[in-house]
Design a protein around this nucleic acid. Structure first.
Lengths: 98, 98
DNA sequence: TTCGTAAATCGTCGAAGGACGATATATATG
DNA sequence: CATATATATCGTCCTTCGACGATTTACGAA
């Protein structure tokens, strides 16, 4: 090892890779599209739309939230998810800059 | 299986997810940026730039090629890799359409 | 408080990803 | 042909991902 001097994965690369990973699953892409369509928010409708167990969908939502692409707001016993326009815009900007 | 009626992951979602997955690793993002900078092509310089074993880099390149983001052309005993402008443009378009 | 619904978390399982060294393949050159 | 270099492929080892059911948590309503 130690060929030259560049072990740093360049934070920018890491950032884009992390965001891309969040979209690296068809179910999560679908969720994003779903939230993009309905300007408002959605609750457990997402579970109904995807054909996956509730726990699985919850995990996908967690990943999208962690990536900053989706936001969740408590609304009574349910949670209102909505697209993070800023997060998505940031991702788009990173991709466009490629 | 067969819970409701929407088992189709909507080819479009699959496609974007597949492309995103190809970029879901910092090393691959770096390779793409590398190839984007140098208009021409590169050979084993990629191995030197990334700090990974040759076999590992080869695998990353394979993934990028499979995704249609990179093309390789035999050039003597080495291979000239170049960015697939079309492939990247397609990806950008899919992301922009989100 | 008890009940019902929505969501998150936990534990498990199998599949896929990512890394490596070793080896195989291909090609130009001596 | 033998050698040197550049890539690809193989086999292995861990880790992470993705799915599930079961359980827990949180809240509104009866």
């Amino acid at each position: 090892m130690s060929k030259r001097t560049a072990p740093q994965p360049l934070a920018a690369d890491e950032e884009l890779a992390t965001l891309a990973k969040a979209l690296a699953h068809p179910a999560r892409v679908r969720v994003l599209r779903l939230l993009a369509r309905r300007e408002g928010c959605i609750g457990c409708d997402i579970v109904a739309d995807l054909e996956l167990a509730q726990s699985t969908v919850s995990e996908h939502l967690r990943i999208l939230k962690a990536a900053g692409l989706v936001e969740g707001e408590v609304d009574g016993p349910r949670i209102c998810y909505r697209l993070s326009r800023d997060g998505l815009a940031h991702f788009k900007a990173l991709v466009a800059a490629l």
